[in-house]
Every structure is written in C-alpha cells, then in structure tokens.
Design a protein around this nucleic acid. Structure first.
Lengths: 145, 145
DNA sequence: AAAATTTTTGCGGAAATCTCGCACCGAATG
DNA sequence: CATTCGGTGCGAGATTTCCGCAAAAATTTT
C-alpha cells in the first residue's frame, strides 16, 4: 500500500475511537468531502490497514465481571508445545488475549470470567498440565482503554 | 436493561467479531428479520451493552511494529500515586492498555512503539521515577485475538 | 518549465442500508 | 376470556454508501 498521508492518519485516529462515524461526520472532522472520506476508508479496509471492525461489549452487562492477567511459564524442554498452546488458547472463550513473550515468562494471558469459581475451574482445567511449570495470577482491579 | 435472550447473545457474538455486518446478514445468521435484528442492536447500543464500535488498525502497517508488556511495581508507601499514574498513562499514546492489578506487581501495561529506540526513550521518560520501584519488560513475540 | 500522465477531488445520482409506523402474534395478567 | 405488553415482519421514507464523471492537483516526463 502506498504511503498514508495526514488525512489517512486522522481518519484512522477517528475510526479507532468510533467506527460508526458517517461519511459526512468524518468530512466535518478531516476537511474533505464525504465521498473522499468514504473512498479513503474503503481503501484502508481493502488494503488491510484497517483489519476489522468490532463492537465492544460491556463485560459487566454481559456478566463477565472479573478479569485476571496470568503470567505463564512453561517447562523449557518443551518448545514444541508453544504452538499447540496458542491454538488451544485461541479456542477458549475465557481467554480474551494471549501474548507470547520473551523474558522470565512465556505467555501473558488476559482472562475474563464471571467469578472466582469460574476462574478456579478454568485454572484447574488448563494450567495443571505437566509442561506448565508455573503460573501467576494477577486480578485486575481496574483498567484503562 | 431487561434480560438478554439467545438472539441478543448471538448478535453480540457476531458483532464482536465483525461490527459491519448488515441487517440482512445478521438476519441470515440469527433467524430474525433484518428490521428485528437492527432494532435489537440499536437497543443494545442505547442501553450500553455495546459500549462502542472501533476499527482495529494493523499495528504493522501503521508503523507500530513492536509491542511490550510491562509489569510495574511501585513503592508501597505511595498509594496516592495510583490515580495520578493511571491518568498519566491514559494520556500517553504508547500505552494502549493499562490494568491495575493485585499481587506482586501493581500495573500491567501494554506498550506499542515503532522500535527499540522509541521504547528505550519511553522507559527513560516514564519509568525512572522515585516512586517506581521496579519494572519488568516482556517483549511480545506474537499475539492472538 | 511546459507538457503529459496519474491520482485524487467534489458533485450528483443510483444502490444499499437503516429507521420507523403499523398491524399482527403470543405470552403473561387480571 | 379479554386485555395488555413486548416483540415480530412488512414496507415506505430517510439516511448513508457507492460509483461514474469531469475538473483540479500532484507527479513524472520531455
């Protein structure tokens, strides 16, 4: 894809905040016509700069009131497990985010559950495996962004 | 807000994946008319079940190729700093996520930067404060979701 | 620096999508 | 059993997006 100019950057900035802005709303904010804005946004989507658009559902209303961050350390002799783990995590609805990282730990997971009981069950089911050496749970008190 | 039935749940599930589905696309998938789907979605938005809609911009294309997770530990004698920290983090464009957590650490940050140099500058600027006791940087090799 | 080429713009109409009133259906209530 | 209440599908009207066109702007060539 060609270079992104200041208009594109402004559009991305706006759409990252609210992807439901209409063509004319974008036009007001970036100083182009509605059609030009929509054309550019369409292009940003086609070229993959905008990967997708998602609705953010309130975890509270949805019933998932509890968030936990888990630092996971695996046995060093099982590097083959990494890919399998990632795929497994991808399928678990409790796992909302999963990062493979360098350093003392191997994975950082963000888990969303309704309560401690559900979390406890999740831990028993997922983390009590021989190739998992250690896990550290950090309960989230509050979040930004 | 009243209870969410299976149709609402299905709609939320779909829109969390792709919020640009049209009324009739939703209709096909949930088995209601287009109008009924849109009415329900509108209600989910008004009542705050759907908090907002956002475009997900590819960090790569956008130029932010590097992601780091930081575990931050503060001096125990400065609890008043927590709110100030959160507000400060909220304003930093590099900080894409910030969680206040229990346990050995106090904050978990997700940082997005173009390269190591920018990250290094960020660390110098932000983490070298007297009330910050320790920070641990985990470079992200790959992510899911 | 002028000409030629390419890209992007704004306009305007067509197409798609969303919104809303209306009549109707089914469950809950008295 | 009638009534109310919440929700449905339909369809007209409003809004939004899409797309072709000619002109303007930017880029490249000569």
């Amino acid at each position: 894809m060609a270079e992104l100019d200041k208009f594109d950057h402004r559009l991305l900035e706006l759409l990252q905040e609210n992807s439901r802005l209409t063509g004319s709303e974008l036009a007001d904010r970036v100083g182009l016509s509605s059609a030009a804005c929509l054309r550019r946004v369409q292009r940003l989507r086609e070229t993959g700069v905008i990967e997708r658009d998602v609705a953010i559902v309130s975890p509270k209303v949805f019933g998932k009131k509890m968030m936990v961050i888990v630092l996971l350390t695996m046995e060093r002799d099982r590097p083959d497990r990494y890919m399998l783990m990632r795929e497994a995590f991808a399928k678990m609805p409790e796992v909302v985010q999963c990062h493979h990282v360098t350093g003392a730990h191997d994975f950082v997971l963000r888990i969303q559950v309704t309560d401690m009981e559900e979390y406890s069950a999740f831990v028993d089911r997922v983390f009590h495996e021989p190739y998992i050496k250690r896990y550290e749970s950090l309960a989230v008190l509050g979040s930004l962004k």
